[in-house]
């Protein structure tokens, strides 16, 4: 992160930690395997990549910096609408421009809401996040001339990527596009988290009272990461819009905010990879359940929430935690210590 000058030389843990481990590289072959293994299911895999990016954005605020939010869909939605309105009203169909616009819009929303979020703590912070999300949902719901309200915003037409690859019916372009964006943003998040800025965020999560004594401007750091995460969420929303060519009001739904929280906890917060693993696990479960039991899947999802909290949160109990640890051991080559 630029603008952050560490007064001391970075400790050894910071230096040299930036190198990619073999297990990480192995993880990133998964999208390639997915391409060949499930050629008919590319739209689903695209959804997984988008969800992973959204969960990654939540991990920056919740897992790394320790801010609990239940309204993260607000920024996802802002990005989704921004990317939808650009082609729909201004006729600018370039997908990359759409991403930039969505990131900017969501970052602006993040910057504007960060003072509100930092005003309170605990329950009131949680409530502010719920309130902001609800406000935006209601605004999108009522501003039907602009957003289409509950009917959604159809006809989002994007021009071919780099003028070369158009978004095809099988979702090939969309998949590669989403995965590459995810990889790039993940790489950036990884750098941010390992920078002195990222370390100070972790310090804030662990002991916010002590950080000012170390000369860390706590609220400013949190505002920056909040804004950054908002931009990430906005890009995720934009990807959804561009790959489905439609904006539904559900992008702002409370369910989405709750779901992404579960995904992150399911995968393990604070490790960045947890967000990705959680997204893969959750979306696969969701897909299977909805296939098996289209009427009743919500029940099982709810049950997963409950089981995760009761058993998988405290130690090695629970299948979710065991699988998570196993995967993490395999991927990162070390035990899950937290």
């Amino acid at each position: 992160m630029t603008g952050v000058v560490s007064p001391m030389a970075a400790p050894a843990a910071l230096r040299g930690a930036g190198a990619w481990k073999p297990a990480e590289l192995l993880f990133w072959t998964l999208p390639v395997i997915g391409w060949f293994a499930f050629p008919e299911n590319l739209p689903l895999l695209t959804q997984i990549a988008i969800t992973a990016l959204f969960a990654l954005s939540l991990d920056l605020v919740l897992g790394v910096a320790g801010m609990v939010t239940l309204g993260h869909a607000a920024f996802f939605g802002v990005g989704a609408y921004a990317a939808g309105m650009l082609p729909a009203y201004l006729g600018i169909g370039d997908p990359l421009l759409g991403l930039v616009a969505a990131a900017a819009a969501a970052a602006l929303a993040g910057a504007l809401t960060s003072p509100l979020m930092l005003r309170g703590s605990g329950l009131s912070q949680l409530m502010v996040s719920v309130g902001i999300n609800a406000m935006l949902y209601e605004a999108a719901n009522k501003a039907t001339e602009v957003t289409g309200g509950v009917d959604g915003l159809p006809g989002v037409e994007n021009t071919p990527l780099f003028g070369m690859w158009s978004f095809d019916l099988y979702g090939r372009t969309a998949y590669v596009y989403a995965v590459v964006v995810l990889l790039l943003l993940f790489w950036m998040a990884r750098r941010v988290v390992r920078s002195p800025f990222g370390v100070s965020l972790r310090g804030i999560r662990l002991n916010a009272a002590r950080m000012p004594a170390l000369g860390v401007p706590v609220n400013r750091r949190l505002a920056v990461v909040w804004t950054l995460a908002a931009a990430y969420a906005g890009v995720a929303g934009a990807l959804l819009t561009q790959t489905t060519q439609f904006v539904s009001i559900n992008v702002l739904g409370f369910d989405r905010s709750a779901e992404v929280l579960l995904i992150l906890i399911l995968g393990g917060a604070g490790h960045l990879y947890g967000a990705l693993v959680g997204a893969v696990a959750y979306m696969s479960i969701h897909h299977l359940l909805a296939d098996i039991d289209p009427e009743f899947w919500q029940f099982w999802i709810g049950l997963i929430f409950i089981v995760v909290v009761l058993f998988a949160r405290d130690g090695a109990l629970g299948a979710a935690a065991r699988i998570r640890d196993l995967i993490r051991n395999l991927i990162l080559g070390r035990g899950a210590s937290r």
């Binding site: 929280l261 919500q298 029940f299 999802i301 929430f305």
Partner: peptide
């Protein structure tokens, strides 16, 4: 807080699914 939030959301989903069923 996070546990309580997640748990009660889970309960909401379960109750909604049961009511619909």
């Amino acid at each position: 807080q996070l546990d309580q939030v997640l748990f009660s959301i889970g309960l909401i989903f379960v109750s909604m699914a049961l009511a619909r069923w």
